[in-house]
Simulated assay, not measured.
Amino acid sequence: MTLRSAALIAAACLLPLPAAAHFQLIHVENPIIEGPGDVPLRLIFWHPFENGHVMDMGQPLAFYSVNKGKKTDLMDRLKPITFTGGENAAAAYEASVPVTRAGDYVLVVEPAPYLEPSEDVFIQQLTKVYLNHAELPTDWMEPQGLATEILPLNKPYNIIAGSTFSGQVLAEGKPVPGVEIEVEFMAAEPDLATNTAKSAVAGPMPGGSVVVVSDADGTFTFGVPKAGWWGFAALGSGPAKEHEGKELSQDAVIWVRAWDLE
């Protein structure tokens, strides 16, 4: 059990409701891009499964895209906004990513560490999501050299609902065995027109967060039961363990999109 997991359990004992999973979002409405142009997105730190509490995001340390191995800095495209979830409103960001060439676009945000008061722990979720233009796969199977990341082992933007998603947790390029990976369904999606949460299409799971554990090679597999966006957060998988004198949970997060067969 990680230190953060122990802190979550301890915090849950003091709260009237179960502790919920924090998830950094890079949200786009559709990862399948039909033509060239700017794709709008939102950066939100939230609990989307239960349309719960939204956390204030600080200025990200880095935000960029990668297409055919070429990195494009997107920091100058960030604009502060307020996002309103089911419980509260908090600081978030809007931006757009230019899609001009065919292939995969790996979007990466390295957020500033967030101090979670209930745990007295900093959380930094290094997050990836994938777009594809013109059905040409180029970058999705490549690691991006993050301090910690989840490498997808099947294409992350067109998973068939009812099949499985597999990933490998890496830290400094090496597999991380035995790490707890929280699984999140984006039951309430952000409305990009209003910067508010849409109505939830599913309720949170009884028994708290859904968790899988990486094997000796750092890999895991999860059966994806429903179409939509699914997030995976490897808790404390990163090499950094402290920030400003407090414990830091440096997590690897990936979002993947599942679709129903029609």
Rank of each mutant, 00 (worst) to 15 (best):
K79F: 08
P80G: 11
P80H: 05
I81C: 10
T82P: 05
F83V: 04
F83I: 10
T84C: 13
T84V: 01
G85M: 00
G85Y: 00
G86A: 13
G86F: 02
E87F: 10
E87L: 05
E87I: 00
E87V: 01
N88D: 08
A90M: 08
A91M: 09
A91K: 13
A92M: 04
A92N: 05
A92T: 03
A92L: 06
Y93E: 12
E94G: 06
E94F: 07
E94I: 00
A95Q: 05
V97F: 02
V99T: 09
T100S: 15
T100R: 11
T100W: 07
R101D: 15
G103S: 02
G103R: 14
G103K: 10
D104Y: 01
Y105N: 06
V109D: 10
P111S: 13
P111A: 10
P111F: 08
P111K: 04
L115A: 12
L115K: 05
E116H: 03
P117I: 01
P117K: 09
S118I: 06
S118H: 11
S118R: 13
E119H: 11
E119R: 11
E119K: 05
I123W: 04
I123V: 10
I123R: 12
Q124N: 01
Q125V: 00
Q125E: 15
L126R: 09
L126H: 13
L126M: 14
T127I: 04
K128E: 08
K128S: 03
V129K: 09
V129Y: 05
Y130Q: 14
Y130I: 07
L131A: 14
L131Y: 04
L131C: 09
H133C: 13
A134G: 09
